[in-house]
């Protein structure tokens, strides 16, 4: 059965017919062309597919698309652009927190959810917020610096 859903995606209303088992990361990547959301494990273990739903960082690889009906979804594409990046995105670039980049969209969005609620986080709060996002390249040190720098800019 196709399910009709409506939601706000990156500040724009979207109406879609989806399958019952359809997963949000696949809908975003394969049907809506929003490939900035990465799929690295498909089991909810790595955080690369993080998007914000109603302002909360969640994993789009273990979220039924049908369940975002009526909600607000923000993907990395909705946060900023190359021409006009969000301060968190710019902070990641400036701090050297981006290496292979596969974890970066998820990290940036998780950091956004944190900073929206907690504008001046401690190192411990940053670690707590980002503990579900795996990065294999950076050792996280520059990611923490980036989040702190972004907080300072706000």
């Amino acid at each position: 059965m196709a399910v009709d859903i409506k939601f706000i995606l990156n500040d724009k209303p979207v109406e879609l017919q989806v399958e019952a088992q359809e997963i949000l990361v696949d809908t975003l990547r394969e049907r809506l062309g929003l490939t900035g959301t990465k799929k690295a494990c498909g089991t909810g273990d790595c955080g690369a597919c993080t998007v914000l739903v109603d302002g909360e960082a969640v994993r789009s690889c273990i979220l039924l698309t049908a369940s975002v009906d009526g909600k607000k979804v923000l993907t990395i594409e909705g946060l900023g652009t190359v021409e006009n990046p969000h301060p968190i995105q710019q902070a990641f670039v400036d701090a050297g927190a981006v290496q292979c980049g596969y974890c970066t969209p998820g990290m940036v969005l998780t950091a956004k959810a944190l900073l929206d609620k907690c504008p001046n986080p401690t190192t411990e709060q940053i670690k707590e917020a980002l503990a579900g996002n795996l990065c294999r390249c950076t050792g996280y040190t520059k990611i923490i610096k980036a989040v702190k720098a972004a907080a300072k800019k706000n």
């Binding site: 594409e77 900023g80 990046p85 995105q89 670039v93 050297g96 981006v98 980049g101 970066t104 940036v108």
Partner: peptide
Amino acid sequence: SVARAEALAKATGRARYTSD
């Protein structure tokens, strides 16, 4: 330490990997 050439494209989700 000039900023990475491709970092902003990665941070904004515009950088395309094979799967994309």
